[in-house]
Amino acid sequence: MKPRFVIPVAVLLVALAIFLMTRPSEVVEAPAVDSSQKLERASRPGPSLSKSGVSPERAAALQAWGLPNPRVSPYSTSSEEHIEWIDEQRAELLEKSHYPDDPAILQEVMASLRSPEPELRVAALEAVINLGSRDAIPYLEQAAVLAETPEEQSNLIEAAEYLKLPTIFEGRAQRKKEREAAAREAAVEE
């Protein structure tokens, strides 16, 4: 198989594996917490995180992209509504990938690469690959630098490299130019 087809297939398989490994098999209810436990947890030192679960440093770096903010679930992470919301957002992202010439859609999909939800970041990466826009390359490269896991970083880099590959039409045009140049050289030598 040609690398042009192997890379997207590999990225999609990795994304599917990530999704299947991170998705809970059943909804687990959070244990009840009384107010004294909440106070105890709140008083413990820990990393400073924003409402979306992202550190302020990473949030500032992500905001510098100039893209709209990603959507954040209005539901608690352990609720059934949250899981349904994630599924709806994933479907919407993949549906948007059918409109490759719309820059607004590309911006929305790229914003989802900053989502605090790993499942949405995977779906956004799939959508970016499907859109095939080279305008996404700098964002993918920056997202790779800010990736939360080495696997996510690798997937983002692979996607950027894939988008850098010439399309079939560009490849044909390049080969045609090379043949014409070779024919001209042959004609000059005769």
Rank of each mutant, 00 (worst) to 15 (best):
W65Q: 11
E88V: 07
L67R: 01
A61V: 00
L62H: 00
R71C: 06
E81S: 11
E81N: 09
Y75T: 00
S97G: 06
A60P: 05
A64E: 08
A60S: 11
P70I: 00
K96E: 12
V72R: 05
S79E: 07
E80W: 09
A91L: 14
A60G: 04
K96V: 00
H82M: 00
A60D: 08
S78D: 15
W85Q: 08
Q89L: 12
L94G: 05
E80M: 12
L67D: 04
L93P: 10
L67N: 05
K96T: 03
Y75K: 01
L67E: 08
L62T: 03
D87I: 07
D87G: 06
A60E: 11
R71K: 12
I86S: 01
R90G: 02
N69I: 03
G66S: 07
G66N: 06
S73K: 01
V72C: 00
E88Y: 09
A61K: 11
S97P: 08
P68C: 05
A91D: 11
N69V: 07
Q89R: 15
R90K: 14
R71H: 07
A61G: 00
H82G: 00
R90H: 12
P74R: 03
N69A: 14
A64Y: 03
L93F: 09
E88H: 08
Q63F: 11
S79W: 10
L94R: 13
A61S: 09
L67H: 06
W65F: 14
L94M: 15
A91M: 10
N69D: 13
G66C: 06
D87K: 11
S79D: 07
A60I: 02
V72P: 02
Y75V: 00
